[in-house]
Design a protein around this nucleic acid. Sequence first.
RNA 1: GGAUCUUUGGCAGAGUUGGUCGAAUGCACCGGUCUUGAAAACCGGCGAGGGUUAUACCUCCCAGAGUUCGAAUCUCUGAGGGUCCA
Length: 415
Amino acid sequence: MIDLKLLQKDFDAMSAKLSRKKVDTSLIADLKQKNEELKKAKTEFETLQAMQNSMSKEFGIYKKEGRDVSELKAKVDANKINIAAALETQRERQEELETLAMSIPNMPDDNVPDGADENDNIEIKKVLAPHAFTFAPKEHWELAEQNGWIDFERGVKLATSRFSVSFGMGAKLERALINFMLNFNSKRGFEEVSVPVIVNRNALKGTGQLPKFEDDLYKIDSQELFLIPTAEVPVTNLFADEILEESQLPIKMTAYTPCFRKEAGAAGRDTRGMIRQHQFHKVELVAITTPQTSDKVFDEMLACASDVLTALELPHRLVTLCTGDLGFSAAKTVDIEVWLPGQNTYREISSVSNTRDFQARRAKIRYKDGDKNSMVHTLNGSSLAVGRTLVAIMENFQNEDGTITIPKVLEPYIN
RNA sequence: GGAUCUUUGGCAGAGUUGGUCGAAUGCACCGGUCUUGAAAACCGGCGAGGGUUAUACCUCCCAGAGUUCGAAUCUCUGAGGGUCCA
């Protein structure tokens, strides 16, 4: 959630930043006004409540002294009616404010480039040059079927479209990749955690998936629980409602989970193959830091994800997302795109984001900052999407006859 | 599934004849005295959010509803945990 105090203090700066993310200034103005109205309603209610409290105290004293309370009671009873009304207004205002505030995205960092969509993203650097093929490289679904690694039809049979089944070496490679990545991340100082893949509404509010993006989540109707779209949700929320000691920070974690997404807005996109699945494996990085160190940890996470690809000998590039492509919670995001020779293009395989204090404010994750409590910064990044990594391996390591060479670093994991 | 108990500040743990309880006490933590330094001892501070220049003031004792002038304390519902029965 954006900082309402800051909004009151510096409306212009904030609305300028948010308008870069296509948030209508009138919305921000509305938010400011609602905030002021809530304040007013609160003051009103609290004044009445204070009266009530002091009269009640008096009441106790009167009783003890055996004095007549009928007059006081009449006063108190009258006040009660006003309190009920004031409380009701306050509640309404509170709810209005919250509904609006929770649906406003994070402000982009100042150095995030302006832009409308992914075409305006800015490449930072390329790592490893795509190697030249002496034959026309195939796309991964062809290779996957030819090698018997992935069965798309049977995935559909078991569930619905956008589900698949991995067999034999395909399945083995997925497992190898997960283990390899977790080990890799551990060595970089990210503690391995294993978390629930079903979470409640509150956790999803904390990281920003709710209330705005409920359509893209799988919901367990009977219980108000949801399948996680990313490990970012349970891992970040591990520390919700907590006040951490500064000495504990930064907390750096890595987790493997399956992820579940309805892909509601993606009809018709990537319908073939396993680029866009409803269920996929992902190894995630999450960090909780002080504001002073979040940029440093961001770079560490980005390097960590990029180095995994380098270790796998996969050509990739780093891309700074422009304002138009930036996610809801992120102040800054760098995507890592892996080279897919079959598709002859770079495709997103990882996304590292700094949400600054946006999620921290929603999830109430704070730390002792001297003698006061301040919001932490939270960061997350994939390292990596396992299915897409497998796709990249298939396409980059394919031989002319359609067989696939296994990257050297994975050999210990599949024997 | 049935019965019963329980849910308090970072932790432990008082508080159940409703009033001055945001809450004893201990531990932990922070500051100080003492010490060459540390430990011990002693003194002081120490929940969170809102609000204020600062006070005042308001809210929070699992969640929600209720009784009452007044609820951590009583009633109901729900959730989590324990024990027993099945």
